[in-house]
């Protein structure tokens, strides 16, 4: 508050510190979880400014890898209540401001 420069620095610090992916909730098996997480990170970094394309990429890749009917939500603020197939849900934060929810339900 006191100094805008300091605030900026803090923000940058926060961005740097908080860039790692943070899994909030998942019931996936270990291997699948790691793979999905990496995919989410890749997609969000690739389409840093376009959440829609990132979501599309994640969905399509997941469909290919783990069978059809995956759903992906990426955004900075949203609420949801979903029904998912057991062991097919991942809810994570990324980049300090993004929430990503990936689940499968056919």
């Amino acid at each position: 508050m006191a100094d805008p420069g300091e605030g900026k620095k803090e923000e940058a610090d926060y961005k740097r510190m908080h860039s790692f992916p943070l899994i909030r909730h998942t019931d996936m098996p270990e291997e699948m979880r790691v793979e999905t997480m990496e995919l989410c990170v890749t997609a969000c970094e690739k389409f840093a400014s376009n959440n829609e394309s990132a979501a599309k990429m994640i969905k399509e890749t997941m469909d290919k890898k783990f069978g059809s009917s995956w759903h992906v939500v990426i955004g900075e603020g949203f609420g949801f209540e979903i029904t998912h197939e057991v062991k097919n849900l991942l809810y994570m934060f990324f980049g300090g401001s993004l929430a990503i929810c990936v689940w499968k339900c056919s």
Partner: peptide
């Protein structure tokens, strides 16, 4: 049919921020 479960949550900036702080 494969077993299903429901999950609900809300994502917004302060929650994300809190989560990161906690994790750190």
């Amino acid at each position: 049919p494969p077993p299903r479960a429901t999950f609900s949550s809300t994502a917004n900036q302060w929650e994300i921020y809190d989560a990161y702080i906690q994790e750190l």
